[in-house]
């Protein structure tokens, strides 16, 4: 076959090797065994296409740049892995990735962010309450005859505290519930977004 003439073989082998090396680097976040399997398959594809008579430049350009190709693999991986993860960091990273792709993703990302902040603040408040009982809690303030409530999680002007020491378990439990609900909501959204992509 003309494609294996000695004159074209050298640059061809080089450009294939360069492509695969770049792809290997870009696929770094993926597990070793899966990465090698991907590289083996892409190498077979390049070889088959080339041997069928497609010029090597065309073969490689149709695959996309190594960065583009690797991104397609990683996108699926990140979201799939995150939809089973419990780590706020992983989940936020996945929603951040989705946020770059549409309005729903942006809303979910900010929802997730607010959820984690709120849940985290409640838990931290519950833990710190014993150390700063007058600064942390849910307070009401009575002024003159009007009874109006001024509520806040942190205030120095405490007149009457609503929950007292009960604030600790209440803050801890509600904080944990907010964190769990946030996590479940993100995972549900990630699963749904995978399903939408699939069933479009």
């Amino acid at each position: 076959m003309t494609s294996t003439q000695p004159t074209t073989q050298q640059p061809t082998t080089q450009s294939i090797a360069a492509y695969l090396a770049a792809l290997r680097l870009q696929l770094a976040p993926i597990t070793l065994s899966e990465r090698e399997e991907i590289l083996r398959e892409i190498a077979a594809h390049i070889r088959d296409s080339f041997e069928a008579g497609t010029p090597i430049d065309t073969v490689l350009s149709r695959l996309g740049t190594p960065a583009q190709l690797a991104a397609e693999y990683r996108d699926g991986q990140l979201i799939r892995a995150a939809s089973r993860s419990l780590s706020p960091l992983t989940l936020l990273r996945a929603t951040l990735r989705l946020a770059t792709k549409g309005v729903t993703g942006i809303i979910v990302f900010f929802g997730a962010f607010i959820g984690y902040i709120t849940g985290g603040a409640l838990v931290i408040g519950g833990i710190l309450k014993p150390f700063a009982p007058n600064q942390i809690g849910l307070f009401t303030t009575n002024t003159t005859r009007d009874v109006w409530k001024q509520t806040g999680l942190v205030t120095n002007d405490a007149r009457h505290e609503i929950f007292g020491w009960w604030g600790i378990p209440i803050a801890l439990v509600s904080g944990v519930i907010v964190l769990i609900l946030t996590t479940l909501a993100i995972r549900l959204f990630l699963r749904l977004s995978q399903r939408v992509q699939r069933s479009l």
């Binding site: 190709l69 397609e72 693999y73």
Partner: peptide, 15 residues
């Protein structure tokens, strides 16, 4: 199709 799109899809469908 851009051939680079099919392989990641096959990979995902396999997982």
């Amino acid at each position: 199709l851009a051939e680079g799109t099919i392989y990641p899809i096959l990979n995902r469908l396999k997982t």
